[in-house]
């Protein structure tokens, strides 16, 4: 059996400090659905600096999901260029994109997307497995990531033994375990109640503040968007509005204001 061990990606130069972590330049994305061409992005440009916390908003069909997929290297633009941490990733092949996702991007999804019947710890280890990290180092880093999201005591639990909020925290731990350049969260609070949502946003704000992690959150909810430093609104495949948040919300403060949880809200499901 052929096993590729030399898995480390060649990432061109440490350019993260030069300013923009994400530089999307006039990208177009055209989907072909049968004979019909759907123009999902019309030359949208976006630049995100290191340490920013960007909220992306827009109605469905506005192109924001397409933009997320391109930024997350799940998809390639039809036209235009995309530089992630200084590297042009718009022309890479599938395997190279997989490597970039592994090394540069952390994903958090609305539906958590943990691998079923696999423990929290192993879920967090997953990106490290594909990065070719040895098992003891994997364990150490996965535990560290679980500690950051406050789930050290749940590492042996399977996803179905965790509440929604806990599952999302495992997903966050997984997204940051490989020290990515950006964390992309696609409606991370869409399936959670207010309190759990606020807790999740508190973790994002903490990571953003303490580790200068660049965070991009796609959301429908203006409340959630206000936890960021900047709001980018999409409409008809273009960026319609790109403004800094004037009065940013502090999730930790909001949590203190909320009525105390009944019992342990994590186990309510």
């Amino acid at each position: 059996m052929i096993v590729d061990t030399g898995r480390k990606v060649n990432i061109a130069g440490p350019q993260e400090d030069s300013g923009a972590v994400i530089r999307v330049e006039r990208v177009h994305k055209i989907y072909k659905m049968g004979d019909v061409e759907v123009h999902a992005l019309h030359g949208a440009s976006l630049s995100v600096n290191r340490g920013e916390f960007v909220s992306i908003m827009g109605p469905s069909g506005s192109g924001k999901s397409t933009m997320m997929n391109i930024i997350g290297c799940l998809d390639r633009p039809t036209k235009g260029q995309y530089f992630l941490a200084g590297q042009d990733v718009s022309k890479l092949n599938k395997a190279q994109l997989a490597d970039i996702r592994n090394q540069r991007v952390g994903f958090v999804f609305q539906s958590f997307n943990l691998v079923p019947r696999t423990s929290a710890l192993e879920n967090v280890e997953l990106p490290l497995v594909y990065a070719g990290v040895g098992s003891s180092e994997r364990l150490r880093r996965a535990r560290e990531a679980l500690a950051i999201v406050g789930l050290s005591d749940r590492e042996r639990n399977m996803p179905n033994q965790l509440s929604g909020g806990q599952q999302q925290r495992v997903a966050i731990a997984r997204s940051l375990v490989n020290h990515p350049s950006i964390i992309l969260a696609d409606e991370p609070t869409g399936a959670l109640d207010t309190r759990t949502s606020t807790e999740v946003m508190e973790i994002f704000q903490r990571l953003n503040r303490e580790r200068s992690l660049t965070i991009i959150v796609v959301t429908h909810e203006p409340d959630i968007a206000d936890y960021g430093t900047r709001i980018v609104s999409f409409r008809d495949g273009r960026i319609k509005r790109d403004v800094p948040v004037e009065s940013r919300r502090d999730a930790a403060a909001v949590l203190r204001e909320l009525p105390p949880p009944g019992e342990d809200e994590d186990d309510e499901q």
């Binding site: 490597d99 996702r101 592994n102 090394q103 990106p127 594909y130």
Partner: peptide, 8 residues
Amino acid sequence: IRMAVGAR
């Protein structure tokens, strides 16, 4: 999921 977190 595996592809998203970097499985080739």
